[in-house]
Design a protein around this nucleic acid. Structure first.
Lengths: 137, 137
DNA sequence: CTCAATGCAAATCCTTTGCATACCT
DNA sequence: AGGTATGCAAAGGATTTGCATTGAG
C-alpha cells in the first residue's frame, strides 16, 4: 500500500506519518471525517501525535488538492474527504449520520440557465440531500 | 410595521426589541446575515444590546421556524435568513459575497430517483451554486 | 407579580499560531 | 547545515452558559 506515498510525492509534499495515515484513513472511511475523528483514530498509531499536526496536514493536503473540505448543515466542525470522491453529491442520513456518495448530478443544465437568466457565471456547486437511509426509516 | 409583532405573537414568543429588530433587519436584507452582522446593525438602535441576546433570539426564532440558519462553504459563521425566503437556492459570488436567491429547483425528480435507487427517503436538500456575479466577472 | 428575557463576564468548542525542538536529505 | 515538520502551550474567533437584574404581559 504505497499508493498514498506516491500521491504525496507527486505533489512534492514530504512523506510524513501524519499525512500518510490521514490519506489512508480518509480513503478507507466511507463518509466524512473531522480533524478530531482523524486525531482519535491516529493517536494510537502515531507516537505523540498532536491535534495541530492533524490540522496542519489537512490544510496542506487540501492545498495540493488531495483532499477537500466541506461544512454540512448543523455541524460546526469542518469535514474532510479524499478529493476524488468529491464532485459527488451526498445523501446524508439525519438519523445515523451515514453519508452516501452519489455521482449523478441534475445541476448542469440548471447552472447554464442561471448563467443566462442572472448573468452569473457558475464555477462550482454543492448539492446535499438530507433524509433517512434504508436502515433508519 | 407591526407585521413583525404579529409574527411573534403567533408563535407565543414574547415581543422584545431584539426579536422585533432581528426579524425586521433580516426581512430587509437581501442575503444572509450572521449573528455579528445583526449585532453591529442593531447595537446603535437598541440600548445595551448584547451579543448573547442576539444569539439567544436567533435560536428561539429558528426554533419557532420564523428564521432558518445555513452554513456556507468556507465561512465559519452561521448565516441566517427569514424562513419564507428559504427553500430558495443560492447563487453565491466568490468575489463580492453577494447572494442571489433563486426559486427554481432541478432537484425534485432527482430526489425521487434517489429514493428508488438507494432506498433513501429525502426530506430536504441544499443546493448552492458558487461563481461570479455580473459585476465581478 | 411572575416568569421569561437580558447584560455581562466567564466558559466552551473548534481551529490557528508561536516557538523551540526533532527530523530528513 | 538548512529547511520543513512536530509538539506543546497559548491565542483566537464564534457561540454558549451562569447568574443577578430587568422587563413584558
Amino acid at each position: 500500500m504505497k499508493m498514498y506515498k506516491k500521491w504525496l510525492k507527486d505533489t512534492q509534499l514530504k512523506v510524513t506519518p501524519a499525512r500518510l495515515n490521514i490519506l489512508k484513513t480518509l480513503d478507507q472511511a466511507d463518509g466524512f471525517l473531522t480533524a478530531d475523528d482523524l486525531f482519535m483514530t491516529l493517536k494510537p498509531k502515531i507516537n505523540n501525535l498532536s491535534l495541530s499536526t492533524v490540522y496542519r496536514a489537512l490544510d496542506q493536503l487540501e492545498a495540493v488538492k488531495l483532499i477537500e473540505s466541506a461544512t454540512l448543515e448543523n455541524k460546526k466542525e469542518v469535514q474532510y474527504e479524499l478529493a476524488h470522491t468529491k464532485h459527488a453529491h451526498h445523501l446524508i442520513c439525519l438519523s445515523c449520520g451515514k453519508v452516501i456518495h452519489i455521482h449523478e448530478c441534475p445541476v448542469h443544465d440548471f447552472a447554464k440557465s442561471m448563467n443566462n437568466q442572472h448573468h452569473f457565471k457558475v464555477t462550482s456547486h454543492t448539492l446535499d440531500l438530507y433524509g433517512y437511509c434504508e436502515d433508519c426509516q
